[in-house]
Design a binder for these strands. Structure first.
Lengths: 192, 192
DNA sequence: ACACAAAACTAACAATTGTTAGTTTATACA
DNA sequence: TGTATAAACTAACAATTGTTAGTTTTGTGT
């Protein structure tokens, strides 16, 4: 891991804990045990650090959902399963980056902000397509696609806030439960 | 509405748009068309503004779920329905405050931070109880209560991010769809 | 008209901010 | 060994931060 990567990683951790604006370049420097001015040997600005974190992860998400959606061997149900898996994995592997992606993107400016918004829109569009296809082929209930989209996406996007605490469950069990809850709901009908 | 209330309201709007740390007292002052120093005739500090927003709304949520949970005439299903309704209502009526509650509470300090965390824990505990009761009486599927809890709560807590855009749906239809999706899932079984 | 309080103002403070300039140290290759 | 490059350093900058002190304006009741 290069020095630049280390700085970005530490900065991501700090951003996720205190928010972009509340973290100074001196804070970041202290975390990698150098002086603030030395950061500029590796990165052009504070903004560039945020951009690297946000756009990098956004690309990972978009590329994955695109591959999934494009794969003709996947059913709607399988596509959703793959997407859930991806969110669980990334939320466990890089919870700080996910946190930054979720809440600190507002502090992006200009071109980077535009890029982020485009990526986000693309991601939502891919998932929207999967949902609409599902409704059309009658594998998904005929409810408002936007409500379905954001309802599921809200849960997946904020997995990072609680998923690390679930140590009593294996990742497999977590995935199985989450999938059941998201796809089949929680109400048990025809009881007894 | 008192001057203090107006300041808090404008500050909440700014906090929700740019984050607590990125909003200066001069920004807030400009929003109510006075000078920064004049704010201190109405409020003791910037922190106090954040405290007012966060703790006030946290209390609203906790009081409501407590009343719901305590009401013996509600079934598990009805309790969940009431809670969903409350989240929709507040997300529509005061989306900025909900946003601040969700993401800016980290910037609270000392006693106020403790109070917030206690409120949040109480809220989760009330919902946890409803879910566990539901599982016991077999009206809720026997899945990990924590996964059920945070899965639903994630969606409800972030309603503010998208619910305002759904103008093609009445609030009633939105609620009906959201309830169906959260409680009964999206997968249509036994199709055709 | 007068007094009093509420609420605005100006001016300033010490601290912190992101960033730059210029310099020294460490590393790698000829 | 000498040289070039990378990466650290010190020092400083202009701007912005939350907040305070002291003063003036505004509005209300007598």
């Amino acid at each position: 891991m290069t020095r630049r990567d280390e700085i970005i990683k530490q900065a991501g951790l700090l951003f996720s804990l205190k928010g972009y604006s509340a973290v100074s370049m001196r804070d970041i420097a202290k975390a990698v045990d150098i002086k603030a001015a030395s950061l500029y040997n590796h990165l052009p600005s504070k903004q560039a650090i945020l951009e690297a974190i946000v756009l990098n992860l956004a690309n990972t998400f978009v590329n994955h959902i695109h591959d999934v959606n494009q794969n003709p061997s996947f059913s709607t149900r399988q596509k959703l399963s793959e997407i859930i898996q991806q969110h669980i994995d990334l939320s466990l592997q890089q919870p700080e980056s996910v946190a930054v992606l979720n809440t600190e993107w507002i502090h992006l400016n200009g071109e980077a902000l535009d890029k982020f918004k485009a990526k986000r829109f693309t991601y939502e569009q891919e998932l929207r397509e999967i949902i609409k296809n599902g409704i059309q082929e009658q594998s998904i209930t005929k409810r408002d696609p936007e409500v379905i989209l954001f309802s599921i996406l809200s849960t997946l996007r904020t997995l990072n806030l609680w998923v690390a605490k679930r140590k009593h469950l294996t990742v497999e069990d977590l995935k199985a439960d989450l999938e059941t809850i998201l796809l089949y709901g929680i109400i048990r009908q025809n009881k007894s």
